[in-house]
Design a protein around this nucleic acid. Sequence first.
DNA 1: CTCATTACTTGTGAAACGCAAGTGAGCATG
DNA 2: CATGCTCACTTGCGTTTCACAAGTAATGAG
Lengths: 149, 149
Amino acid sequence: MPKINPAPKRRSGCPLNASIEILGDRWSLLIVRDMMLRNFHSYKQFLESHERIATNILADRLRDLEKHGIITPQRDPEDGRKVIYRLTAKGIDLAPVMAEMVLWSASHEDVGNQELVRQIRADKTKFVAGVRQRWAAQQTKSSTNGNSK
Amino acid sequence: MPKINPAPKRRSGCPLNASIEILGDRWSLLIVRDMMLRNFHSYKQFLESHERIATNILADRLRDLEKHGIITPQRDPEDGRKVIYRLTAKGIDLAPVMAEMVLWSASHEDVGNQELVRQIRADKTKFVAGVRQRWAAQQTKSSTNGNSK
DNA sequence: CTCATTACTTGTGAAACGCAAGTGAGCATG
DNA sequence: CATGCTCACTTGCGTTTCACAAGTAATGAG
């Protein structure tokens, strides 16, 4: 009987520490960003598009994100080679965290994508709601293509 | 003519990426937390108190945080052995980011310090304002001991 | 002067990362 | 069903970062 979940074993009970242990690396949140804002769903998209993540690191991170319940993979019903990664509710709930991170760096560093910054600055709540709405729409859409498995 | 700031050289202009490159590791935000919430100011406090950071890593992180303008070190005028680390305005501006991270893990993971969670949940704006206020009070207090830099 | 304290540095091994190349399963075409 | 292509990975290997233990320089107390 192998232990499936060998216990989290955190460094401390601090909630900030918990978030850091899950998200505190150089890639996880970028993958979430691509799913949330750019509508990316496949390994290949993650590889090609953003900040040039290495293939093995990407595979690692996708595994970790799945292990933590932030994303779920599913086979593409129309192409058996493809895996479609989707954010879970837990994953979508990262939108406020990411929004604040964007606002912070936009205030203190020299960054691009000012359109995004302006949008979040104008109405943070609306931004998060928009992210949630697009996600919910995707969810219903993909459940109409019978994938019961 | 030495280059003081050898150019940031980011992986991308994305504001989220900028934040991740500065804060995306397992220790930086914990140090900020200790300064912001627990009023820690010295190397020794950081070492003893929280999640058992190694001495060399702590020295590294303090250097990085200073390099990024998030903290400033100053000699203790009353004890020349001590260095007092203080958050800058940029550092204090991390409060909303940290608050959202706390809320996220509190909603989805099994974490402690529910008192902090409750406080942030009850009124996030007030929480951030409180952090800011305590920080501002410290600033004026320490500036009466002449530190012009 | 000696001794403790504080803020580090150094050394060493382990783990994580980053790049290049390779593998295997699933379509697509003839 | 053979060939080639795409997609999602894995494997090897060198480099960087991390973690733990120990040591050191500067300051202060007695």
